[in-house]
Design a binder for these strands. Sequence first.
DNA 1: TTACGTGCAAAATCTTTGCCCCTGA
DNA 2: TCAGGGGCAAAGATTTTGCACGTAA
Lengths: 134, 134
Amino acid sequence: MSETKLRYSKQRETIYEVLKDDCTHPSVDAIYTQVKKRIPDISLGTVYRNLNLLADNKRINRLDIGDGVIHFDARTDPHLHMVCDECGLIQDIVCHDSTLLELINKVNRHSEHEIHSADIIFHGTCSHCLKKKS
Amino acid sequence: MSETKLRYSKQRETIYEVLKDDCTHPSVDAIYTQVKKRIPDISLGTVYRNLNLLADNKRINRLDIGDGVIHFDARTDPHLHMVCDECGLIQDIVCHDSTLLELINKVNRHSEHEIHSADIIFHGTCSHCLKKKS
DNA sequence: TTACGTGCAAAATCTTTGCCCCTGA
DNA sequence: TCAGGGGCAAAGATTTTGCACGTAA
């Protein structure tokens, strides 16, 4: 949870590279499988450790969609997520305007709490599955 | 995941009653502890089984705040959640107006996907912790 | 040199499941 | 009667951690 100085390690940078090039919001296991192609003897524990370190240092984000495993995302700009209930894919929804900030401001005005951030996960049917259905 | 007819059971109704009277969005373990006071020999497996059944039948909702355990909520009207990063409490944020629907509609207009629902979890500092700080 | 990082395996958590007995309808 | 429900314990699944060895700075 705390931000600490990190020394270079091939494993950690490879994990970060793999995640950065993967837009599917992969689970730890999926990342492990990918990284293993480049560093065959890396261990799952190392992948967990480094993903947690990277997240604690805000280089990546944890993403919890409620499927029982943690997903990770190398995008750190504010954006929303959409989970397709048909195919399970997780997609980014870019905030075209100030929608997200507006929502947070609205809640801040109407409640006594102080909101700092919002994790928003939409559920529905993705464009690809919509086409398949019609 | 599928909705099925459920026969009456004392255990299930007690679990539902306990959850309905608890506004803290308790974890399975917290619910188990509560229910155990009324039915001392109930088993944890039964609590899991029934919470999942109740959720599948839409009588309650699962709530995933990313802390590694599932929370449950007997409120089924559309509302948002706020997790206090200081004390960990989960609070309801009532949607005063059509904010939530507006957000969903906006995304539906701007993306090719079809959004059906939104799970929104705010992070910040709750009113109680704000007072303690000042 | 030395504090941080790794691989490995064991442990810790959390959740589901099989089995046999019980119970609501 | 009998299919659904429960208790118990074992199994599964996911994640963390201790330890001895390796490595960046």
